[in-house]
Design a binder for these strands. Structure first.
Length: 229
DNA sequence: GTCCAGGGCCTAC
DNA sequence: GTAGGCCATGGA
């Protein structure tokens, strides 16, 4: 699915976002494990809520694979209450930690020694890690070439008329991976900038056309559709 | 009071 | 392979 000037358009959007907001320097975390825990905890909840949960885990000494495996469900759930769905997320954290311990003896170095696509399949087999979470782990914790897509990305591309019905997660991910340079920094900032634009800047109208049409139209020219959107 | 936030799983068709 | 229900906090 290669479009003629799609690469140009995607890079144009990126450059406009970067110029407007500057580098976002994701992921806001100190360690790789913290990135992974954060990626699970931020599922369908604001980063503010998720971030509080990560801090609580850290404060109570639970921010490590072994601690999460050995701690009782209720103890973890209590610390991550602000992340919403805290019972499910407790299980998800435990699932990942059990996978890491049993398969890699707890070593993230060993885990990340695999190629992106191979490791992606493995992560997707962990109950609680879906596509977006897997890609976030690969990119932001493992610094691997795996583009992170999400609902914001889809909406953004729809406004530009780029999707034309193709809309599954993997289709959108491939769209980027096949049409922009394979560069970790670019992948990192691009996704972060989309989230920042759609959430932080346009949060007053998160699901409306106005947000992504009006506001972007003042900042971003889309050379693909030959229009301001 | 309502709406939504950096999803994913399970089930039914 | 996809639509719908479920999970179940905090801020605007």
């Amino acid at each position: 699915m290669h479009f003629h000037n799609l690469e140009k358009t995607l890079l144009e959007i990126y450059n406009r976002l970067l110029k407007a907001y500057g580098p976002r320097n994701w992921w806001p975390a100190r360690t790789r494990f913290e990135v992974i825990a954060g990626a699970i905890l931020t599922q369908n909840v604001s980063w503010k809520n998720a971030s509080t949960a990560v801090s609580n885990l850290k404060k109570s000494g639970l921010l490590s694979p072994l601690a999460i495996i050995s701690a009782p469900h209720k103890q973890i759930a209590l610390q991550i209450k602000t992340s919403r769905y805290y019972n499910q997320k407790t299980a998800k954290l435990k699932n990942f930690c059990n996978y890491l311990e049993s398969k890699y003896n707890g070593s993230l170095n060993k885990m990340f020694s695999h190629g992106a696509e191979t490791l992606r399949k493995e992560l997707l087999d962990v109950n609680g890690i879906g596509k977006e979470t897997a890609d976030s782990i690969l990119l932001y914790a493992g610094r691997k070439l795996s583009f992170v897509s999400d609902a914001y990305t889809k909406r953004l591309l729809e406004r530009y008329g780029i999707l034309n019905g193709l809309s599954s997660y993997d289709e959108i991910r491939r769209l980027f991976m096949e049409n922009i340079p394979k560069d970790i920094y670019l992948y990192n900032e691009y996704h972060a900038l989309i989230v920042h634009h759609c959430y932080a800047v346009c949060k007053s109208e998160p699901s409306c056309q106005t947000c992504l049409v009006k506001r972007i139209s003042r900042n971003i020219y889309c050379s693909y559709s030959n229009n301001f959107l």
